[in-house]
Nucleic acid binder design. Sequence first.
DNA 1: CAGGATCCTTTACGATACTG
DNA 2: CAGTATCGTAAAGGATCCTG
Lengths: 119, 119
Amino acid sequence: MKKQSVVNNTNICKNRIQAIKDTMEILSGKWKFHILGTLMQGGSMRFMDLLREVEGIAPKMLSKELQDMEVNQLVNRTVCNTKPITVEYAITEYGKTLSPIIDEIAKWGISYRSSLLNK
Amino acid sequence: MKKQSVVNNTNICKNRIQAIKDTMEILSGKWKFHILGTLMQGGSMRFMDLLREVEGIAPKMLSKELQDMEVNQLVNRTVCNTKPITVEYAITEYGKTLSPIIDEIAKWGISYRSSLLNK
DNA sequence: CAGGATCCTTTACGATACTG
DNA sequence: CAGTATCGTAAAGGATCCTG
């Protein structure tokens, strides 16, 4: 009667690896974590602001990464009727579900830095 | 006397972004999360086992990624005196500090999958 | 301001073959 | 078995110019 243990260890492992693959595919590229981290603390930001905050990124790359994330509903793009036009980017509610990941990454980076200093 | 508030909001933000940068630099490349996830659940593994488990990776890439991570002390390489020689890879204690990140990534991937199914 | 178009350079990645 | 060598492609990245 213990038929549910068909879900064996091997399967759980495979699923876990598949899950990592899935997530990383969506967050692939050099800049996505970086952009998400910036948007998470900056609220709504314009293209130019992002270009300034995400140091080192070229407009071409920023544009491409934002499009990727828009497709995956992680960020929201809003055109404002100003003159000249401005565009606001913000994290969606769905995108916010990534914040535990970003938080852990930031946390690790911080302790990494301090472990470098204490040598 | 409140001189410590020199650490203002802007600085905290910059540090956070820098921390994300640091972490992602160490975990850069297409395969590191994947390999780490595998090693975390597999314990000590041989090169060939990894090649099999990390589906799709080429030996060259596996070798390179493992070397990167060895330099950063995330994984441990042990040569065994067998015939023919075998090599065991395992996560270091330091590497294990990355597990909250990997866990969050796996968790997100799993709920991402199930949200796809419920459409 | 927001970004697309173009061109060019440099890495990253992949497939296959080979060696101690 | 555990890799390295070699070669080729694709993507990343940078610089500059252009347009609605």
